[in-house]
């Protein structure tokens, strides 16, 4: 029932994005659009996964998050700086970081579910029946998959971002360092360390989940930075 509603929402969203694309407007041509696009990717990813795995609790985190983003995207004022996004490099950067953040968002949702399930099983609080949620190993594996898909995308986003900032700096004659750049770097480092530790040292479970959450929080700070700048 809830899933059917979410499916409908995602399809409608896709129609909107598709319409924009037909009108030669990139899905990420403004901050609002970008946030809405993040929501779309996250909802789509969750939806696809939920048909294969039991992810009831996951939905409880993904869906409100998606809703909040969509609402924020609607209230975001139209971009004064849209012009600067006009360059292909800028558009590519925004697109890549949007997709990257959305995929990290899914990893974070899985991490939250993992932590809840882990706690429930360790403390043996078995309210109701077992079997409502996917196994821990599955949650862990899916989260790893999200991070390993998201990381290369986000890496490219950082690179294009750096190039773009450098080019804008060259045009303006000076470089402005914003706190967002720092958070973006922190995000990249967090997920990089996570991937290395998982593959290299067999990190998994709770520690990996917390690190995922840390990385995603930092990514959210980047978005928040843009949003605050936009509103003020």
């Amino acid at each position: 029932m809830g899933r059917a509603a979410l499916t409908l929402g995602v399809v409608l969203h896709l129609v909107e994005i598709g319409t924009n694309c037909v009108q030669a407007r990139s899905p990420v041509s403004s901050t609002g659009d970008a946030m809405s696009f993040v929501a779309f990717i996250a909802a789509l990813g969750y939806l696809v996964a939920s048909y294969r795995y039991r992810l009831a609790t996951g939905g409880a985190f993904v869906v409100p998050g998606v809703l909040a983003l969509v609402v924020l995207a609607r209230v975001a004022p139209a971009e004064p700086g849209t012009l600067s996004l006009g360059s292909p490099l800028g558009r590519l950067h925004v697109f890549l970081s949007t997709v990257g953040v959305a995929v990290f968002g899914l990893a974070a949702a899985l991490a939250i579910v993992y932590l809840i399930e882990d706690k429930r099983l360790r403390q043996r609080r078995f309210s109701g029946t077992l079997g409502k949620e996917a196994p821990l190993a599955t949650l862990d594996r899916l989260a790893l998959r999200c991070v390993s898909v998201g990381f290369p995308i986000f890496t490219l986003a950082i690179l294009t971002g750096a190039l773009w900032v450098a080019r804008l700096g060259a045009i303006a004659g000076h470089m402005s360092l914003r706190p967002e750049y720092l958070f973006a770097l922190a995000t990249w480092i967090a997920f990089g360390v996570l991937l290395l530790a998982r593959i290299g040292a067999g990190w998994r479970g709770r520690r990996a989940a917390w690190l995922t959450l840390g990385g995603f929080a930092s990514a959210l700070l980047v978005l928040a930075g843009y949003f605050v700048r936009l509103v003020t």
């Binding site: 077992l130 079997g131 949620e133 196994p135 821990l136 599955t138």
Partner: peptide, 11 residues
């Protein structure tokens, strides 16, 4: 139920 419990952990 024991098998079910293990299934909450392993895929």
């Amino acid at each position: 139920v024991a098998v079910d419990f293990a299934r909450q952990i392993f895929e």
